[in-house]
């Protein structure tokens, strides 16, 4: 059973073993609007928790995506280079951004679970 956690910046991370898969939430894609370009981190890059990991661009503006936890990037989602609009269509599923090997799984404890995130988003609306 995988465990999904969320940040206040609207990233999600799904953890299986010591690997995490990161993307942005449906709320985030809705706020950004039509996504036209995604800049992803290269495999091998070391990321500090909360560090800038990716950039997502809508017609209007560029926004940073931060990594929920520290780790080393193992893979990024090639499909987004050709089809950035996937982020609008399936943000919490097919349009994952990158995978990373967790440096410190204890950092996950500081993130929100689904119920807490839903509550957090409700407070923003």
């Amino acid at each position: 059973m995988s465990d999904v956690r969320f940040t206040k910046d609207h990233e999600w991370i799904r953890v299986e073993g010591d690997l995490g898969t990161v993307g942005i939430t449906d709320y985030a894609q809705h706020q950004l609007g039509d996504i036209v370009f995604v800049d992803l981190p290269e495999p091998g890059r070391d990321l500090a928790q909360g560090g800038e990991a990716a950039v997502v661009e809508s017609v209007k503006a560029a926004s940073e995506v931060y990594t929920p936890v520290a780790g080393t990037v193992t893979e990024n989602n090639d499909a987004l280079a050709d089809q950035p609009a996937l982020v609008n269509q399936s943000p919490e599923d097919g349009a994952w951004f990158f995978r990373l090997r967790l440096a410190d799984p204890a950092q996950l404890a500081g993130l929100m679970d689904r119920a807490a995130y839903d509550e957090y988003v409700k407070g923003l609306e």
Partner: peptide
């Protein structure tokens, strides 16, 4: 209004 529900891409 920066956009309506259709979104910038569709409006353009």
């Amino acid at each position: 209004p920066v956009q309506y529900p259709a979104g910038i891409l569709a409006e353009h």
